[in-house]
Amino acid sequence: MAAQDSPNQTSLPRRLIVGSLVAIAILALAVWFIAPGSVSTNDAQIDGHIHPLNARVSGTIVWVNPIVDDTHFVKAGTVLARLDSNDYEPTVDRLQGDVQSTEAQLSSAKLNVDISEATSVSRLSVAKAAVDEAQAEKDTAEAQSLAAAAAVTQSNAVFKRAEDDRKRYLALFESHEISQSEYDQRATEAATAEAQLRAAEANLSAARQHIASAAQRITERKSDVLAAQTAPQQIASARANVLRVNGDLRKTKASLKDAVLNLSYTEIVAPVDGVIGRKQIEVGQRISAGSLILTLTPPDEIWAIANFKETQLQRMKIGQTATIHIDSSGEDLSGTVESLGGATGAKYALLPPENATGNYVKVVQRVPVRVRISSGRQRTSLVPGMSIEVRVDTRL
């Protein structure tokens, strides 16, 4: 009979089989609980806000804060540099004067409206009364003219008789038939009559001029009546003038506000806390509006951007926890998936791929995933651009 196997020889293969099954089970559990439960990538970096600070007006730099230099930290509100304000102060002064002048014009225009409204009722009656007064003055002047004309006729007759008497007496005097005194008396009477004639003619001329002047005043007063009848239109015109001047005032104030803002922009102030980078200003430098002065990087406004393969996004969703490994320090930080990219990284490229050329090669694309770094941790040593590794737990 063949010899029987010993118990030790039969139990050894059984143990090997059991051990292999246990190892397979452990490996299966590891694959089940670990591999499908997380995804990771080393195509990731720290990202953050980088604020470019541009000049808002052109000018010459007259002062730069001594603390302004690359890698230096500044607080929000710190004056970084100043431009020469002499380029903008005269404009502000001129526009302030324009505003005051236009305000005075507006006050005058409003007062004119009040005056027009207050006098619109009485102006017509006053104008009509002035016409009647001018007509009465003309009638008086015409009566005076008639009286003056009669006086001229009478004075002319007296003068002719006196002049004829003087001429006869002159002949008698020359023939020595009368004395010198008798002739002188007739000559005096003739001269007096002539003076009275000239005075009567002057009165007639003045009366006629008075008639013409009265007629001119009647025409003027009638024009006043017509003007008084257009009082509603004048009031409307005065109100329109108020609107026009008010519009000019608003435009002037807007120009003044713009000039004051430009003057304030000559003082360049840090808008946020941040670390200075790319400083490009020096005293005496002439800069134009829009020129880049420097950049500010707030140390606390940071997050992680991880570029995962599209095949890794099957179970990824917003809110899942993540572990962020910092290459520079070896530190691990916790985080949360905040958002998934709206397109692959290739689509954001300057020249995105065009697959309709017939030479299509399928390449696994990467999608940017934004991870929020948990607050409460020391993050001052993190700066945008640092290399990191990100692992996301996809079991939640």
Rank of each mutant, 00 (worst) to 15 (best):
Asn42Pro: 01
Tyr183Ala: 10
Glu354Val: 14
Ala306Tyr: 06
Glu331Gln: 14
Leu243Asp: 15
Ser20Cys: 07
Leu382Cys: 04
Arg244Ser: 15
Ala2Cys: 04
Asp164Met: 03
Ala193Ile: 04
Lys251Val: 05
Ala141Gln: 07
Phe33Arg: 13
Arg244Cys: 01
Ile178Tyr: 02
Thr153Ile: 05
Ala150Ser: 11
Asn359Pro: 10
Ala207Ile: 03
Pro7Asn: 03
Val367His: 01
Thr297Arg: 03
Leu333Tyr: 06
Ser120Ala: 15
Gly97Cys: 08
Ala240Arg: 05
Glu389Pro: 00
Ser175Gln: 13
Ala130Ile: 06
His51Arg: 04
Thr102Met: 02
Glu182Gln: 11
Ala187Ser: 14
Arg186Gln: 09
Arg166Trp: 08
Gly358Gln: 05
Asn246Asp: 15
Thr344Asp: 12
Ser381Thr: 12
Val272His: 08
Ile268Lys: 02
Ile34Ala: 06
Leu95Val: 07
His210Cys: 01
Leu204Asp: 11
Gly330Pro: 08
Leu83Tyr: 05
Asp165Val: 10
Val269Glu: 09
Arg221Leu: 04
Ala157Thr: 14
Asp114Val: 15
Gly319Trp: 07
Thr119Ser: 15
Ile268Asp: 02
Asp258Pro: 00
Ala349Gln: 03
Ala25Ser: 09
Thr252Phe: 01
Arg217Phe: 01
Glu177Cys: 00
Tyr265Pro: 03
Glu189Gly: 05
Gly385Trp: 00
Ala289Gln: 06
Leu256Lys: 08
Lys362Tyr: 08
Ala212Leu: 10
Gln280His: 12
Asn65Phe: 03
Ala214Arg: 07
Ser288Asn: 13
Glu142Leu: 10
Ala343Phe: 04
Val121Phe: 11
Leu111Ile: 08
Ile268Phe: 03
Ala104Leu: 14
Lys75Leu: 13
Gly335Lys: 01
Ser179His: 01
Ser38Ala: 10
Gly358Ile: 03
Val269Met: 11
Leu226Thr: 13
Met386Gln: 06
Thr10Phe: 02
Val269Lys: 13
Ala190Ile: 06
Glu182Val: 14
Tyr348Cys: 02
Ser155Tyr: 04
Val121Gln: 14
Asp5Gly: 05
Ala151Asn: 07
Ser288Lys: 11
Arg250Gln: 15
Pro36Gln: 10
Glu182Ser: 09
